[in-house]
Amino acid sequence: MDLSNKLSVSTAPFLKDKNTTPKIMMTVVYTLIPIVMISIYYFGLAALLVTITSVFSCMFTEWLFNNKQKDRFKSLKDGSGLITGLLLALTLPPGFPLWMVFIGGFVAIGMGKAMWGGLGQNIFNPALLGRAFLQAAFPTAITTWSPADGRYFGIRGTNFATPFFQGENIDAVSGATPLSKMKFDHVATDSFELLMGTTGGSLGETCALLLILAGAYLLIKKIINWRIPVSIILTVSLFSGIFYMINPEIYPSPIFMLLSGGMLLGTVYMATDLVTSPLTPKGTWIFGIGIGVLIVLIRIWGGLPEGVMYAILLMNAGTPLLNRFTKIRTYGHKKSN
């Protein structure tokens, strides 16, 4: 009955909640799978190719930067790189040249995460950083939207464009997205079309209904902080609602605002990124409201039709400050210090 050889000297607690970081990450991955599938359904094999390339690039880059780690595969197993790969793909147009996708993944993980010290250390959402880089480097390619026309095997010629030979010359189909139609022509797209995703756009920006369901699931599982989607959605509705009431001819309706473009994808998956959003309740409210205001400002007055990406990245930059300045009041203390 002597246990001394078997006993370890660790200290309490000796019970542990079943939740683990890889489990949390994998739950997010599972919710992304239907969204990827619907994008393949709408955009055909091109979407699949973009997704595979993006995921492969992200995982490869993780592995590459892990050269100093004991276990080079540990960060691959935690699932966070997989999430970045899937999310990056969902922000890209289906006809996007694959070599550019690869670069996007490399930048997302390399500059967006590994450089900061890996999981949990980065300031900006890696997928959005990758996407922002692509936007800056290849402004034409990234705004070449193919319509969702259900051409399953219609692999877009642009996918196989090679470096220095710009793809947009090959593919003549360059559809407009609901947001660019709104922005430049003041034409609103039907809400039902937006909900079902039968409109143009990047892979994950089309089917609003699935994104809403995925978001609801993540909320129920308590994986994402409810304050973030709630504050973003409320802010965007209220703020854009004011403009809509002033002049519904030129300003989009709140419903359109909420259902179009990267709004839902960004709200459900990127703004709620655990690592890059604030820890304190007050901080998360400010964060969400900030994103909502920026989205409306950029969409209405910015030079770009879409503002979600920049809105989130800007507020990401403010997260460390929000964490510092929105301290929680400790029990038994008068106010937070």
Binding site: N19, T20, T21, P22, I24, K74, D78, S80, G117, G118, L119, G120, Q121, N225, L274, V275, S277, L279, T280, K327, I328, R329, T330, Y331, G332
Partner: peptide, 20 residues
């Protein structure tokens, strides 16, 4: 196995005396 802090805030929501 220990991972880096992913800032999920679960500890913040758990602490009975509202520490971070």
């Amino acid at each position: 196995e220990e991972y880096n802090c992913i800032r999920c805030g679960k500890c913040v929501d758990a602490c009975p005396i509202f520490l971070n």
